[in-house]
Amino acid sequence: MPQQVRGVIARSKGAAVELTDIVVPDPGPDEVVVAIAACGVCHTDLTYREGGINDEFPFLLGHEAAGTVESVGAGVESVQPGDFVVLNWRAVCGQCRACKRGRPQYCFNTFNATQRMTLTDGTELTPALGIGAFADKTLVHAGQCTKVDPTVDPAVAGLLGCGVMAGLGAAVNTGGVGRGDSVAVIGCGGVGDAAIAGARLAGATTIIAVDRDDRKLAWARDLGATHTINAAENDAVTAVQELTGGFGADVVIDAVGRPETWQQAFYARDLAGTVVLVGVPTPDMRLEMPLLDFFARGGSLKSSWYGDCLPERDFPMLIDLHRQGRLPLDKFVTERISLDDVEKAFHTMHAGEVLRSVVIL
């Protein structure tokens, strides 16, 4: 039978979110109902509320989540009721040209649940990133569920569902950071600090955090930065070069996603170095630079989608590293809140006062 549970929705552009009753259908073929244990408050959810993704209101917000499989539909073999899972928003198809070429992290046909959750009056909801986890329970495709160690704190595990995986993967997977490398990260929110943690995990010896907020720079140092630069007081490019023997960093990660920060990343890297864009630009942003500079500096210019991760490979491994004390995921959890605190958490996040607020259910 369909279930009526609580969920946080964005009913219209810019309006405050609402905690209301929603209806979760029984899982159909390849679908799973998950009882949510914890869900991080990500900037992407705020972007949905502001109409920055699309206009398919009302949205069921929340996507950075972990929970327990409650029921499964026909044909589901990868998980079963009782499994503890982290949800992901890029369930690969295995059949598209990217998957068949051995590059499933670029899958062009990712899966979501076929059925829609609704309001009690039957209005269909658009789940954020195909998940919708600011709710007691949600309906997802089975491929969006990755089993991990059930003894881990759900508030920590859920962070892999978006921001932490995006940043950490930008360093390790996309940027290919290795032992002895120098790395600079521009923007030290949750994604940027995850890139710093990833660079440290990969063995980088010089890890430079760049931001305009001393509080964020302190968080970055706590997560592995060896040097910090306040870009409000110093020229970021010059400062990075000075900290890397005058050459620039081997890998520079732009976790902001603005033309200005991307240009800083471009010029702050060493010759033949790598730039990784993981911050998400808006459609109106434009970049104008001398084409000769691209040719003359060589190297790689990359964009990172969800940290180029493969959830089945990366999530269990990262949880194991956390449990070994090698990856301090718990440091990203600034506060634990309830479902009716999401709107307040948006304001706190926008003010830069937290790395992550996490809804506990």
Rank of each mutant, 00 (worst) to 15 (best):
Q3S: 15
R6F: 14
G7L: 08
G7A: 07
R11Q: 12
A15G: 04
A15E: 15
L19W: 05
I22W: 06
E31Q: 03
V33A: 00
A35K: 13
A35P: 08
A38V: 01
C39F: 06
V41L: 07
T47K: 15
R49T: 07
I53T: 13
N54F: 09
L61Q: 00
A66M: 01
G67N: 05
T68W: 11
S71K: 13
V72F: 06
V72Q: 02
A74H: 10
E77Y: 05
V79S: 02
Q80V: 15
D83M: 06
F84R: 03
N88A: 12
N88Q: 03
W89C: 07
R90P: 12
V92K: 04
C93P: 09
G94P: 00
Q95M: 14
C96D: 08
R97P: 04
C99L: 05
G102W: 07
R103M: 15
Q105H: 13
Y106Q: 15
Y106H: 14
T114W: 12
Q115E: 02
L119K: 10
T120L: 06
I131D: 03
I131V: 07
D136Y: 09
K137H: 06
K137E: 02
L139V: 08
L139E: 12
H141T: 04
A142T: 13
G143V: 08
D149V: 11
D153H: 12
D153A: 00
P154Q: 02
V156E: 13
L159K: 04
L160Q: 10
G161V: 07
G161Q: 02
L168A: 14
G180V: 08
D181Y: 03
V185D: 00
G192Y: 05
G192R: 05
I196W: 00
A197T: 06
G198I: 04
L201A: 05
T206I: 11
T206S: 01
I207R: 01
A209F: 05
D213H: 14
A225C: 08
I229S: 01
N234E: 13
N234R: 15
T238H: 12
T238L: 13
A239K: 00
A239T: 03
G245A: 09
G246E: 02
G246R: 06
A249F: 00
L271I: 10
L271W: 13
L277P: 02
L277T: 05
G279M: 03
M285H: 11
M285E: 15
R286S: 10
E288H: 15
P290E: 15
L291G: 08
D293A: 11
G298H: 03
S300W: 10
K302N: 12
W305F: 14
Y306N: 06
D308A: 12
C309H: 09
L310T: 15
L310W: 06
E312F: 09
F315D: 11
D320C: 05
H322M: 10
R323H: 14
P328Q: 02
D330H: 13
V333E: 09
S338R: 14
D340V: 01
V342D: 08
M349T: 07
L355S: 10
I360P: 03
L361R: 12
